[in-house]
Design a protein around this nucleic acid. Sequence first.
DNA 1: CTATGTAAACAAC
DNA 2: GTTGTTTACATAG
Length: 752
Amino acid sequence: MKTSPHRPLILKRRRPPLPVQNAPGETSEGEPKRPSVQQEPGDAQVSNEVAESTSCKFPVGIKIINHPTMPNTQVVAIPNNANIQSIITALTAKGKESGSNGPNKFILISCGGAPTHPPEPQPEAQTSNDSKRTEGITKTLGPKPAASDVNLPRPPGALLGQRWENCAGGEAAGCTLNTSLTNIQWLGKMSSDGLGSCSIKQEMEGKENQHLEPSRVKVEEPPRGSTSWQDSVSERPPYSYMAMIQFAINSTERKRMTLKDIYTWIEDHFPYFKHMAKPGWKNSIRHNLSLHDMFVRETSANGKVSFWTIHPSANRYLTLDQVFKQQKRPNPELRRNVTIKTALPLGARRKMKPLLPRVSSYLVPIRFPVSQPLVLQPSVKVPLPLAASLMSSELARHRKRVRIAPKVPLADEGVAPLPTAGPVKEEKLLLGEGLSPLLPVQSIKEEETQPGEEMPHLARPIKVESPPLIEWPSPCPSVKEELSQSWEEDSPHSPTPRSKKSYSGLRSPTRCVSEMLVIKRREGREMSRSRRKQHLLPPCVDEPELLFSEAPGTSRPATELPLPSEPSVPAPQLGYSQEEGGPFKTPVKEMLPISSTPSKSVLPLSPESWRLTPPAKVGGLEFSPVRTPERAFGPLADSLGLPDFSTTPLKSIPLFDSPQELLNSEPFDLNSDPFSSCPLSDMEVPKPGYPMVGEPQVASLPANRSLTEGLVLDTMNDSLSKILLDISFPGLEEDLLGPDNINWAQLMPELR
DNA sequence: CTATGTAAACAAC
DNA sequence: GTTGTTTACATAG
């Protein structure tokens, strides 16, 4: 260490004691130990199970038959009440397992009947409390076979969405399964997941100061699609630390991870860090966590464990696999960035230069809620997903300017406008402008919070919270500009001291977020000097339980938040007034206090604002607002993925990049009547170029002919697309049938 | 100027 | 020793 003359002294920071609350259930905490690594097993199991089911056994009402003409393709008839997510998950596992030799494409069709059981009325509704239940569902994916799971009577949509949200809580260790889903694994090959190998982890590394020898590097097997950096120990991944951290956190179900797990995840997924990087990379990780406002630290209920989460409004749920996909596509930019130092001895590479493709890192596709068509309005023209994602930085920049303001129409669905998908950069913009108005942040997790109350205060800037239904008090009009940068916001010292983030008890940031969303304006200029600011989320209690616990005043220092429970929360502002002079600088990151960074900060990711939808529970499926995102437009590229089906009468419309997306977001309901309830609206939006199969045809169908909408899950490409199946009645003339002349109805009577 | 990466000083555990 | 914060500085764009 050099003492740098410039180095300012750091005053003592005092950290207020974190309130410790124990949630009875807080299971998760302990797990930090298990890094994502473990997930694997879970998956594997699943697959096995599934595998057998090939023929017909999947869970209860599910029927699986081989596609009459397409190799490696199976048609899966799913009862209306089945848990699609679980099924998709299982199929995905199965497909992956089978690899190219076995069934790797599945056509999912809802077979109406078969409600094995009456839909259960689930009382739970979305209460957040159901964590338990949620878990159950989540687990579905897991080892457990599906039988039970799949058929869980879950209310179709509703729960699903919820579950994600809630589940999101599982930290790395916690929900293994999920993690896996989220993880790269979905893509299987995409990443080398080093899960296996990594289990070992490095405990040794110890000091950040020391170097590790690259000597034994074990590279995992090369995944098929792997890019060089994935397997290569010597190549640094083209992602910025911030991006990697996001990937890591988002790989967990609960979207939170301990520092250690983040390290582990990164090492597992990017061998470079495990073997080649200088020890200082961990310092950089920490630095990034502290620096970027999007990363919010939460403490476990018991206060003993700290988890890093991504601020909901900033989380785009980027996952490595998503990014990876894009990379697969030729993207020169990325590549070039990546190159560099491959072989250099450690010492040599010193410079960081090319590290990250800045832009690229963020190329991750943004997901839009499908359900909202409006999003893509014409004006926006979001290019195809792909395009968008691939956009080069320049573009991005360009975009920035242009950026569409998300419209405000929130009202409609609560969803917002959609931002085009763009690289992260744009996010900023989004946030800034767009956000403000819309930002309905859902309180997803919280569920209950009452938005109403809080809102009032906010009037000022923007915070929007979206009440479940749409009522946003005053949303926002004017404010827009304010935010330019951070999502977080701050009101300049607002009067209310409240607290820093107050994340008090509520479990989730979400709520907080909402509160916080206020936009900030002043920050930028003034704070220029510091790069960032911090906020700590107090104890986040994930589970609902917390509510209780906190309420009483338990542990939380009174000083901090008055309102443990949420309702009263005063104001969004936080007081981070402290920060300035405050006694403690550190400890508490105030949530929103500011973003500090002169520029950046926060926004790297943005917003979901638009994407958040109120919890709508609309039809049946709602999804978690938060998670949803992805799908919508994605990948067009993917569309490419299903070429094979061309042979069939089906046309597929790619909806998701990965099944997961669908799962996450989709409200898509197989059950629903394809045409009626599930209008293409969703689909159409996304891909302009895509020929829609739907409507038009429908209209003209012969009486004896019917089409049904289904999904094509291609585990080889990890894509999920919508398709229309031609279910003709027997006797229909062949020519009317698809090219293949497959009479689906005959094959699967259930379809009728 | 911004976004990143790195290094490092410190603080609190 | 680990985890977090915060500065300072270097670099590429």
